[in-house]
Nucleic acid binder design. Structure first.
Length: 427
DNA sequence: TCTGGGGTCCTAGGACCC
DNA sequence: TCTGGGGTCCTAGGACCC
């Protein structure tokens, strides 16, 4: 008999698949998508996986291999991926309201209430519709817990005989799937814990599930114990349909070249502060503290000692670009160390609160001035979000458009679906 | 030459209090 | 001379995820 089930819908090679949507000529052609700065490989089509290019590989290390294999290379195009993700999620909601959007390319569905004998047929139909309406291929895993649904989805992807849908519903079937899964591939078991578990002779997910829970708890803590429960069929995680209230908002970038000059860091930090505060305003939130961090090249020995950060607290929570930028620049002045070659920097906005709950300040020097600042901000957001605007058309003076810190992005595809200037052309 | 960005949660240890 | 112990709060760092 079948108990209650969760499904995980997982887009296959999502970014690579997005690049194919408006380029059907790339069907069957090996594709990779690179991270910001064209730094590492963050998505690979099946053909590239077959070539043996690992996930996360630094581009400069695999460049020759990619070229030799005739691989088509893309810089990341998040405007496109975000829009395609929205289309897939919309289809899921038309199937059921009980959906948790887990990431840009994955969602859980609560299948409680679905008759067991029709689940597989329903999921096959859902998969076919997503493919037909968005041209994105997905795999669907079904299991009694989120972690088992994840494992099922992995099986659906790897075992082509399953046709893209896999359900784990019996003990025998579940055990055989766990036995085929390396423990490090289990959702919640990362590199560090994998190493620790392997050293203790725990190699497969089944080995892990068969340990006494106390031992797991002792070895890798409560998070590991939850994963253990889930693998053994007890739910430790539920479907969360309402996204939680965010607790932080970060904008950061690696630089294309090392940066040592304070003035250049100011430009970068001002840009990050503007981006983060804009995102906050979009969600009607405000920040109570601002933290700036500066990082040296993490692949250099001794770089950790060069890293630094500083925090400033605002008198009143704010999401105003001018106020956030001023705070961030003050924090930068505290964190900056002369003579360090910085490779990355960022702004974190913390102690967030919803805007409507903000108390007007009793001691504000000039409420009228605050209003004007607020109105100006609204006007700027309006201009920058207009479909005809180029990115950040209106911005404050501390920022400049060129500099060592700007990222490289040489191979980006057009923003087909979100920019009038970049619509696909039919010829 | 060239190694992503944005999140959350947990834990250990220090500060502080009585 | 003898110099506690337990609780709470905060923070930094480490772990995980996609």
């Amino acid at each position: 008999m079948i108990g209650k089930m969760f499904a995980l819908v997982d887009c296959n090679n999502f970014y690579a698949s997005c690049e194919r949507v408006f380029r059907p000529d790339l069907e069957g052609v090996p594709i990779v998508v690179l991270s910001n700065n064209d730094g590492c490989v963050i998505a690979r089509s099946n053909e590239v996986k077959a070539l043996g290019v690992p996930m996360g590989a630094p581009y400069f290390k695999v460049k020759d291999m990619l070229n030799a294999g005739g691989v088509k290379i893309f810089s990341s195009n998040y405007a496109l991926y975000g829009d395609m993700s929205g289309r897939v999620m919309t289809i899921l909601y038309s199937f059921s309201p009980e959906v948790e959007i887990y990431s840009i390319d994955e969602a859980f569905i609560d299948l409680d209430g679905f008759a067991p004998n029709v689940i597989i047929a329903q999921m096959n139909a859902l998969r076919a519709n997503i493919k037909k309406w968005t041209s994105i291929p997905v795999s669907i895993g079904i299991g009694p817990t989120k972690t088992l649904a994840k494992i099922a989805a992995e099986r659906a992807k790897k075992d082509l005989s399953l046709g893209g849908v896999c359900m784990l519903d019996g003990k025998t079937q579940t055990h055989s799937a766990l036995n085929l899964t390396p423990v490090g591939d289990v959702w919640g078991i990362g590199r560090a814990w994998n190493k620790r578990l392997n050293a203790g002779g725990i190699i497969t997910a089944l080995d892990f599930a068969n340990q006494p829970m106390q031992l797991v708890r002792k070895k890798i803590g409560v998070s590991g114990a939850r994963t253990w429960l889930e693998l053994n069929g007890t739910r430790a995680f539920v479907i969360e349909m309402q996204p939680g209230i965010r607790k932080s908002c970060i904008s950061s970038r690696s630089f294309s070249k090392n940066v040592t000059v304070l003035d250049e860091l100011k430009e970068a930090i001002a840009t990050f502060a503007a981006r983060a505060s804009e995102r906050l305003r979009g969600e009607r939130m405000a920040a109570g503290t601002i933290s700036v961090f500066l990082l040296a090249n993490r692949f250099d020995e001794n770089s950790i000692a060069a890293n630094s950060s500083a925090t400033v607290t605002l008198d009143n929570p704010s999401a105003n670009t001018v106020e956030i930028t001023q705070g961030a620049l003050a924090a930068l002045a505290k964190a900056y160390k002369k003579g360090i070659a910085y490779k990355k920097a960022g702004v974190s906005l913390l102690e967030l609160s919803p805007m409507h709950s903000l108390q007007p300040s009793l001691f504000s020097a000039a409420p009228d001035k605050e209003n004007r600042a607020h109105n100006l901000q609204i006007a700027i957001d309006k201009i920058n979000s207009s479909p005809r605007a180029v990115r950040d058309m209106v911005h404050i003076g501390a920022r400049k458009q060129k500099g060592n810190w700007h990222m490289r992005q040489d191979m980006r595809s057009p923003r087909y679906t979100t920019s009038w200037r970049e619509l696909p052309r039919v010829t």
